[in-house]
Design a protein around this nucleic acid. Structure first.
Lengths: 199, 199
DNA sequence: TCGCCCCTGTCGCATATGCAACGCCACATC
DNA sequence: GATGTGGCGTTGCATATGCGACAGGGGCGA
């Protein structure tokens, strides 16, 4: 990535994002003022507006940045078995599930705060953009349109299920959720990924 | 106080001090580099030198600032009984003792890191400067030289005992330490403070 | 010994940020 | 309605900080 961004910019954004997180712990998002965020972050209020349009923008950017960072640490386990096994696929799903669980505060906030005006489409966009290229490495023909469609189908389904899982306070453990997701996805993806699956 | 200091200055110093604290948790002070502190604090190395001469200076300043902040929250309980009671005096001692206990990580570091070249005189200077005017409010004649001497005697004695207490991992609870200190100090201060003491 | 590497302090210049102030708007109180 | 109060978003100017570079020096292996 571009590591040429001024350190002050990175620092200021991090301080503002951390401040928002800390304040969310204490009071509902709607009642938080820009002034408070700036004070908590030890950043001038005017500087806030140099980086974010308003507190909603800060929230979305925070999510975007955190997702990017979190997913940058995710690597597709090597070697990729050929043909792809069911357990390997489950491990991949589990990685995403765990990411959601770790960032559940954020995701839940985005889902619960209906007044945010943040459509769930935005949320899906983040997740799909992050997971799509990642799934793509598993496909036989990474450039085929059919694969794109199939992958989008899969990621959308994952996002939908994960949203349900998060907003219902994780009614089942991570492993069980991953198992269910795999069982739902395998039949659909059977044609796009490896020739055969482990029984 | 002068609260007109630029917010950036306050923030930078706080970040550097916090970074030092975090690093001290992980590795010995001597092995910590200025470069590391700056990176941890998300502050440029050159900026470090705008505020501190070297890492030793940072350590001392950190102590000074923390002591100042901590002691600024300390108020002499009102009203001051006349004549001063033993229990009231004990409460005063206890406040200082608790401050030492809360900042024990810092004080212990200053005592243990002998290679710092920080003399314990510097430590005493901080404590005396902080406690002297504070004790002074209790004296009959706040401007007398005899009182100054007596108060210096008392604060030095307290610092010495507290150093022993901290470097020996607090072998007795705070209350007991305060009791012992009061019993040692009362006879010496009998002439300088209130006419009589509660039995 | 030499060269090499890395950290330290320090410099000049570019720029992100602080500060104070402003108009705007929503809301409250009389 | 008149008035105040407080947060929002923006601006111009002052300044703290980032960045890149530099010399100096200590460690370390050829």
């Amino acid at each position: 990535m571009s590591r040429k961004t001024d350190l002050r910019v990175l620092r200021t954004r991090q301080l503002l994002q951390d401040a928002l997180l800390d304040l969310i712990e204490v009071k509902p998002f709607e009642s938080i003022q820009v002034k408070e965020i700036a004070e908590e972050a030890m950043v001038n209020r005017a500087t806030f507006y140099l980086h974010y349009r308003d507190k909603y923008d800060l929230l979305i950017q925070s999510l975007a940045d955190r997702v990017e960072v979190a997913l940058s640490h995710i690597v597709v386990p090597q070697p990729v078995p050929n043909p792809i096994t069911k357990t390997y696929f489950r491990d991949l799903i589990l990685i995403v599930v765990r990411h959601f669980a770790a960032e559940r505060r954020f995701y839940r906030l985005l889902l619960v705060e209906s007044r945010l005006g943040i459509t769930s489409e935005a949320l899906e966009t983040y997740i799909e953009a992050a997971t799509l290229p990642w799934f793509r490495t598993l496909a036989k023909d990474p450039d085929g349109h059919a694969v794109d469609m199939a992958l989008k189908f899969a990621s959308s389904a994952c996002v939908g299920v994960l949203k349900w899982w998060i907003s219902n306070d994780q009614p089942m453990p991570e492993g069980a959720l991953a198992d269910h997701l795999v069982n739902l996805l395998v039949p659909a993806l059977l044609d796009q990924f490896g020739v055969e699956w482990e029984a």
